[in-house]
Design a protein around this nucleic acid. Structure first.
Lengths: 121, 121
DNA sequence: ACTCGGTATCGACGGGTGTCAACATAGACA
DNA sequence: TGTCTATGTTGACACCCGTCGATACCGAGT
């Protein structure tokens, strides 16, 4: 039941507005919003994924080739697996250019997480 | 060899400074920092926990009794289990006052997560 | 002391997740 | 065409995690 249809994740192109959510101090999350946001937090809940994400985000030009960030102490298939999860959760987007695949962060999605955790009263 | 030792995870009492971390756009996370931050993200990676956290954060007075927030569609033991995880990850603190137990958010920890996701260039 | 309501812990079950080796796919270039 | 390099996919494995019912713990009244 729970999982059934989940949200579909239409790839959310990097510029799309992410309506969710006001700061958590201002109002409680609806079950649906909680479901959506939890997916994003889950994407960053693994140390390896967090490092991959951080490597992309901090890379010059705002994007990085897999070959630039793959050195995180796990096998290549595992890196690929984690990048896929980050992509599916909407935090990263990828684009193939010739031999290499480049990843960059989806700013609006990350901004939504940051805004939600903003605690100013 | 930097400030290194700040860590230890001594249950982090609510007021403690959380040195981690600069915005992810500015530098890549160290493996150790990634490990620490992943714990916090993991705490918010479940829809039920996210709702509980949001209920505490948005509650009048900045704190809430378990009885005020327990209605999230799962059994009481499960609520207790999730609140424990939020406590252990440092996002919430709890205090018993008479019959009831009150939870409130640990502002510095949440602020660290928000700051890390701040994307301004 | 006893009971009662609020909260935490225990033990078990089922599904999810990170990891790897092996294999598949996609461009580039000879 | 064929080979080489970069990346993704598959299948299998061990482990983690969310959930529940049963039970224990803790204060407050009676």
């Amino acid at each position: 039941m729970s999982k059934s249809e989940v949200v579909e994740l239409p790839v959310l192109d990097a510029g799309a507005a992410v309506p969710c959510c006001p700061p958590i101090t201002s109002a409680e999350l609806s079950p649906a919003d909680a479901e959506r946001m939890a997916v994003m937090f889950k994407a960053l809940s693994d140390p390896v994924r967090l490092r991959l994400f951080s490597k992309v985000a901090s890379h010059a030009g705002g994007e990085a080739c897999v070959c630039d960030i793959a050195d995180v102490g796990v096998s290549q298939p595992t890196v690929s697996h984690h990048l896929k999860k980050l992509r599916e959760s909407g935090l990263l987007t990828s684009e193939r250019r010739g031999t290499w695949v480049y990843y960059k962060v989806a700013p609006s999605v990350v901004a939504a997480m940051s805004a939600m955790l903003d605690l100013r009263d």
